[in-house]
Design a protein around this nucleic acid. Structure first.
Lengths: 212, 212
DNA sequence: TAGATTGTTAATCGATTAACAATC
DNA sequence: TAGATTGTTAATCGATTAACAATC
């Protein structure tokens, strides 16, 4: 019994995972304000989740609190950083160096969070050869070669939808373990590769829906 | 009994709403391929939701199918467009005309979906005065005035987080009914205003999490 | 008509909330 | 110690899936 389950961390539901960054963000603010401790009840009032949910969520990863006291802000903040994998860097390439690609590349917060974009690729003659954050934008044709010669964990896809799948293939072939997909294309990838989709159109349509 | 409930469309859950754009997208593809009819079962195989879920989802809005036949692609596509509010235009302003603002402004698909960006605002000297899609980018100070003189339904916020709330206030004061918020700030707005958040950092952290 | 497939009710599953004993 | 608040189990709620009668 013991041996077999030792490494089987019971799966935490995706709903929980997606709430973690919010906890992290609020903890960060408390830290800045030099707040040293916080109860699930106080946190509940700030964030808008129930205290019960907060305690349940956190307890998926360990007992970070102390009865009668609450949670130590600094400790919890650090634990969340660890859980979210913010304690290390991730090499990434951006494929599609248009406005959206630029926006991501230039967003300091992502860089500080550990997203290190080490390569930019495009097909447009206007863009290829230009510099982005001190790095020359390469032609898409050089992507496969680049992937071979660099450790790239994350591929960021900000190209027109029709090209998305073939680029995903090159990225995966080149060793990327995570794809951040900004297109509407549903990408097919091997089981050990992760796709995180940002569906701006779905978000927009949802907004439209509620305006009617 | 009749009178009171007549207008009370039972609330459709947000989970359902967020699946609609995906149905719409796949229907669009079928339409392009001149497929005239589709069963929930066939759709299920394409989209990856269960046939049962698809039928349940659609039946929140009406009985669009026909027993023994399935769904008429053209009809269902048109119905979804109507439900999602894609059958009309929405005037919008973009506040924050940096890379992200540019990306949104230049994304043709949004324009074709009905998002009409009629004003751009920023504070940067480098950007204010320049043209974006043939329209001069104005200084943020002119936003309130612009809102007063134009019908603007949607405010798109792509500024640094610290300015987000005060800009939201101006937008709401000026009549915006929906905010598309690309910052991490949780916006406080009156009850009749809708905020649709795009949390890129939460998406990125989720990706990080799964890479560990 | 027989076969197919919807619309809809019932059963199941999972996530959220409530409750409270454990304990700092 | 008494009070506070966690960690955790139990109850509730809502969403998903299964089943099937209705019907094209």
């Amino acid at each position: 019994m013991a041996g077999k389950n030792e490494n089987v961390k019971k799966d935490v539901s995706i709903a929980v995972i997606r709430r973690l960054p919010k906890y992290y963000r609020y903890l960060e603010e408390l830290l800045k304000k030099d707040v040293t401790k916080i109860s699930s009840n106080e946190l509940s009032k700030m964030i808008g989740f129930t205290a019960s949910q907060i305690r349940q969520d956190l307890n998926n990863f360990g007992g970070f609190g102390q009865q009668g006291y609450g949670y130590n802000v600094e400790v919890l903040h650090a634990e969340l950083a660890k859980i979210l994998g913010l304690n290390r860097d991730y090499n990434a390439v951006i494929v599609g160096a248009g406005n959206l690609g630029h926006a991501i590349a230039n967003y300091d917060k992502f860089d500080r969070a550990g997203l290190k974009t080490i390569g930019y690729f495009d097909v447009s003659e206007e863009i290829v050869g230009k510099e982005l954050r001190g790095i020359e934008v390469l032609h898409l044709d050089e992507l496969a070669n680049f992937m071979e010669n660099n450790e790239v964990e994350i591929g960021i896809i900000t190209v027109p939808r029709t090209q998305a799948q073939s680029i995903a293939n090159v990225l995966v072939e080149g060793g990327a373990k995570g794809l951040w997909n900004f297109t509407t294309q549903d990408l097919e990838v091997p089981e050990d590769v992760l796709v995180e989709n940002v569906r701006l159109n779905e978000s927009l349509y949802t907004l439209f829906y509620f305006l009617n």
